[in-house]
Nucleic acid binder design. Sequence first.
DNA 1: GAAAAGCGAGAGCACTGCTCACAATTCTGT
DNA 2: ACAGAATTGTGAGCAGTGCTCTCGCTTTTC
Lengths: 237, 237
Amino acid sequence: MAGTRERARAATTADILCIAREQMAALGAEGLSLRAIARELGMVSSAVYRYVASRDELLTALIIDSYDRLGAAAEVADRGVRRRADIRARWRAVANAIRDWAMTNPSEYALLFGTPVPGYAAPQDTIGPATRYTLVLVQLLADLDATGVVRDTPVPKALRADIARLRDVFGVPVHESTLVVGLSAWAALMGAINLELFGHLHNVVDRPGALFEAVVAQHGELLTGGTIGGRTASNPT
Amino acid sequence: MAGTRERARAATTADILCIAREQMAALGAEGLSLRAIARELGMVSSAVYRYVASRDELLTALIIDSYDRLGAAAEVADRGVRRRADIRARWRAVANAIRDWAMTNPSEYALLFGTPVPGYAAPQDTIGPATRYTLVLVQLLADLDATGVVRDTPVPKALRADIARLRDVFGVPVHESTLVVGLSAWAALMGAINLELFGHLHNVVDRPGALFEAVVAQHGELLTGGTIGGRTASNPT
DNA sequence: GAAAAGCGAGAGCACTGCTCACAATTCTGT
DNA sequence: ACAGAATTGTGAGCAGTGCTCTCGCTTTTC
């Protein structure tokens, strides 16, 4: 029977990834052990090396898969908003999706956005899937630009050249001022999730999720609102 | 000679911490090895257990020390601004100090704000030093309030109760709207540093530091500027 | 000066990633 | 159909880890 071997190989490879994910959820990326996986599979430890070259390679596979799942979650959240022109609603949806994914898969989120494994340079294979969730956000900015919102956000001169690259990479035309607020919203989003998920808010705020809500609301306004800065009556100008 | 033993003990304890820091800088927190420290000290591995109870305890000591250094860096940066009323300048100074500290001590920063060690609940000892750098930011908000800036930033109702705690913890009176923009700025700051330091910008922007600059500039305006949102001519209301 | 406390050495346990030679199995080309 | 090749699992083994325990030696304390 041709292909039997291939199917068996694919099956145990999938088993290994599955067990690895469970192990990571239980003990963190640190506690990922090939020997434990082998035990779980009823094999001797050296046997799993027939399927995965090293512990780092397994980690890389998990990273790629996690990026993919996160990207998928962001995409379905964005597509779930019927009124495509309501950028603020889409931003909220995507931001919440990313946070929800992080909260339900904390170890995988930590694998992606926590401390990088030292001496472990992300292989080229990971940068593709990594851009998936980012692309959702960039597309949001492009669609926002299409609605004709004008911003007087100052764009630091030094940033223009750097930001030009983003257009090239993603192939989406976005105004510089939009990119600035977009990048800022991205950073705030990830920062809020990190602070909450990694337990830095326990002594600051009663309900850790509060920070996230505030950040999303504020940057939602910043993205779609328009003007920021200056020009308040009590501003001592 | 009385106290000889004590001084020797303090000396080797300091040596252990020092070597541990070097090791972490070289190999990351993952690569911190008590046996390697013992080798470096010319002792047998079991001897270092006279000075440190376990690897986790060493990690905790490093965390406390790192929080302390970060807090000190933030404090001197803030104090370095002569015009105390120039909140924006102080914000820039503190933000830059935190980023600089992170860039020059990446492994220690990762220890504080990266993936928490699984199953390792931050001991009570760490929460004191952890608030030191936070206090600098909160004090900034209090001083900002004292300048009389008025904001019409909407404060989500659900946040009020949560935020009240911050006042209690730090004992500094701050308006709710100020706290909202302050927390948001904090999240954005940490998010930008994380994204840059952990290498998530390499495929997005030419110069990774660009995101940080944009975030600091924007939230500097948000903090000290006043109004945000709405009210633009082209805003389709 | 004797008792107590602290310190370093060394052996040992259980665990890890990873390699290698060997045997059993399955696939493939003629 | 059968021989040769490729694949898969086994078990031993190496080097490393955190940590424990006992045994002497030194310093401090009473």
